[in-house]
Amino acid sequence: MNATLAIARATFGEAIRKRVLLIILLVALLILLVTPAFEVLAVREQKTILTSFGLGIIQLAGALIAIILCINMIPQEIERRTIYTILSKPVLRHHFVLGKFLGAMQTLAFAFLLMGVAFMLVMYLTLREIDPKVVKGLIMFFFQSSLLAGVTLFFSTFASPLVNFFLSGGTFLVGNILSNFLNTIEKNPQVGSMTRIPVQILVLLMPNFANFNVQNPIINPEQQLTDETAYLVQTVAYGGVYICLLLVAAVLIFNQREM
């Protein structure tokens, strides 16, 4: 465990010094700072626009950070041969994979903290109030990007960074749409089981990123939700279980991998 934590710390330390990452963070912060410009446009919907855009941008930045961080994580270690010095120490490969993932999560937590604080600052300056529900949205998006980091790390055990970028990006998009797709299909009586069942199976197998998007009731606070706590708890558990699944699968492949 010591070794895992040491690898996590080293990964975090390197990640926050990486320029790409800093640029994305900077862009996200910049856009957040630009959001008040929308208030000129929005006559009535200042809060809606600000909240939805802010959360949307943070989600997108979180996803980009997760992908860009993790596509290179293992290939780069091999390329720089650092992995040889690490694996020649009494470190098992699953320690390495887990350490890398924890480092990625730590980086994401840091990024979300930074963006979240900036967002709430903007919110306060624009609306003179901070909606504490926003924190709920931020936390769920943090778990969402952690899941995405798991997906990307999994792909990185066998795919090149470029291929991985599209694989992970595609998985993220599909994982965001799939539930909506099934929802639409289930409401349309004309769609037969030949279409419905495969989609249902896909929904059960693919990582469902849409689960973590709870911004609608934050933007429309009058909404009454059914079993919200149960939903949030189960969704976080879902994220945790799915991440474990991805990590075990990553270890399985990585154990076989020759570098």
Binding site: A10, G13, E14, R17, R80, R81, T82, Y84, T85, S88
Partner: peptide, 13 residues
């Protein structure tokens, strides 16, 4: 212990 050829370490450290 192992020292690889042209070792690269996390150079921010």
């Amino acid at each position: 212990s192992y020292l690889p050829e042209n070792p690269y370490f996390y150079d921010y450290m």
